[in-house]
Write a protein that binds this DNA or RNA. Structure first.
Length: 466
DNA sequence: GATATGATTAGATGTCTGGA
DNA sequence: TCCAGACATCTAATCATATC
């Protein structure tokens, strides 16, 4: 593969060098590439190029050639109605995007590390303008030729629509978009929906997307109702379903509310009851890691007891022993406990097993038909059993969900007297500052004493360190 | 062992806002 | 109107663990 270079007029009095890709045969000879007539071109364009017979429609090379031709045509058209300076700026960005695409095997994806952030923003901005139907037809066509609005998958119907009967691409002339009545486009939309199903809104052809986006301005109540009835309300009433950005303060208030309810700020990143809050919390940690979190925000979060380094990372990378753990474990979880957060329970179990080897002890034992109930630790003692629950933050969730039902189910399952020990490993008030290790000693002492005495009633509950 | 589920994270994208 | 900074939102990849 070799590259040829030619000058290309960008705006009056300026030129840009654009690299064109040219293939070579195995024997080293260059493949002849004849001149193509671009779709957006008019008959007066003398520098028109024609697609090589060997190349398939939509190839990377063709899109570049097409983009260049569009750009050239665009220059002429835009110069008539915009200031040279603005045209110049736009052309410069367009050319930069084109160069980027050439250098990156046809991809317009730009990473932050590529040092092309302004170009990425410009591309985003152009896409936004396209969505809002604010681009001139020439600009839209030029950007489209560059693959700026490429959707991931194109429907068969759309693919076929681009071709005439003989299989060649139809020519689309500038300012000559097929004119359709509202009803015709609506029918096309419904057809697309019927063929592709309800879940394909994101794959709508760009033409239908743009048409839909324009419908928010539709005055006709009848048309609006038709769209709403067919599941396109978000386009008619865009604000209703649009993603709304909440401010930092709003999310902080939500976090404070969460903290009040759960005694901690560790909102799971995929917290189902408030997904945006989960994303937001993850973002705060990320920003903190990057060192770009504003000091006042960091302070506010710290004051709320926010943990910037989730324990999972700590467990993964750091040493795992009680000494290291003491005073650091303070995380409970919503719903299913994150496996890494069960480390504390595991430590309690290992410590007890070490001290009470004579007893049959099980950790996180799933109860057959009661699969949803898993006592943290079960110790079987002759004709009765001791169940130890490591109640991080006093299992407030269980209280809400009905602890009585849970105990009843446990009793039904075991069908022998039960002694339930609820152990609180975390400081629950300023008055009780015993750390995890001290509490563990208290628990061991309690188990040592109470394991000698069988329960009198069906179920007895002891609270340790509450 | 295969599959399902969920946590975590980096990176990409979209949105808001203010300044030129 | 355009652009850029800030950051909220989302996606995808990866990993760990539970469950079948």
């Amino acid at each position: 593969m070799t590259f040829s270079c030619r000058s290309f007029p960008v705006a009056e009095g300026r030129s840009k060098k654009i690299f064109l890709r040219r293939s070579k045969n195995d024997d080293g000879s260059t493949i002849k590439r004849s001149v193509v007539t671009p779709r957006c071109n008019n008959s007066n364009n003398k520098r028109s190029v024609k697609r090589s017979s060997s190349s398939k429609g939509g190839s990377f090379e063709n899109s570049i050639v097409f983009s260049l031709a569009c750009l050239e045509e665009l220059t002429k058209v835009e110069m008539k109605r915009d200031t040279p300076k603005l045209i110049d700026l736009w052309m410069e960005k367009y050319t930069e995007a084109l160069e980027w695409k050439l250098a990156n095997e046809g991809s317009l994806t730009i990473k932050k590390t590529d040092d092309k952030v302004p170009l990425a923003r410009w591309i985003t901005y152009q896409r936004k303008l396209a969505r809002e139907d604010k681009l001139t037809p020439e600009k839209y066509e030029a950007l489209n030729a560059l693959g700026m609005f490429d959707v991931k998958r194109r429907s068969k119907g759309e693919e076929n629509n681009d071709r005439s009967n003989d299989g060649t691409k139809k020519k689309k002339k500038q300012n000559q978009r097929p004119k359709q009545s509202w009803e015709q486009t609506f029918e096309e939309l419904i057809l697309f929906k019927e063929i592709n199903g309800d879940g394909t809104k994101n794959q709508l052809p760009i033409k239908l997307k743009r048409w839909l986006n324009a419908q928010k301005n539709t005055k006709s109540m009848e048309k609006r109702q038709l769209l709403i009835d067919n599941g396109f309300e978000e386009y008619v009433n865009p604000k209703k379903n649009a993603r709304r950005r909440a401010s930092w303060d709003t999310r902080f208030t939500e976090l404070r509310q969460f903290q009040r309810e759960h005694d901690h700020c560790n909102v799971p990143a995929t917290y189902r009851l408030n997904r945006p809050l989960g994303y937001w919390v993850a973002t705060q940690r990320k920003t903190h890691r990057n060192g770009t979190l504003k000091p006042e925000r960091e302070q506010a979060l710290t004051n709320l007891g926010f943990e910037f380094e989730p324990l999972k990372t700590w467990y993964r990378n750091g040493p795992r022993n009680v000494d290291e753990l003491a005073g650091k474990v303070s995380v409970s979880w919503m719903g299913r406990a994150a496996p890494a957060y069960e480390e504390k329970q595991k430590l309690v179990f290992e410590s007890l097993r070490e001290n009470f080897r004579e007893f049959d002890m099980r950790f996180n034992h799933r109860l057959g038909r009661l699969g949803s109930i898993k006592p943290d630790i079960v110790i079987e003692v002759n004709n009765w059993a001791m169940i130890i629950e490591v109640d991080e933050f006093q299992h407030k969730k269980y209280e809400r969900d009905g602890e009585d039902d849970r105990l009843e189910q446990l009793r039904d399952y075991f069908n022998i007297p039960l002694k339930v020990v609820r152990f609180n490993p975390d400081p629950c008030s300023m008055k009780d500052e015993r750390d995890f290790e001290e509490r563990l000693e208290v628990l061991k002492e309690h188990v040592r004493n109470s394991i000698e005495v069988a329960p009198i009633r069906d179920v007895e509950i002891d609270y340790v360190c509450f």
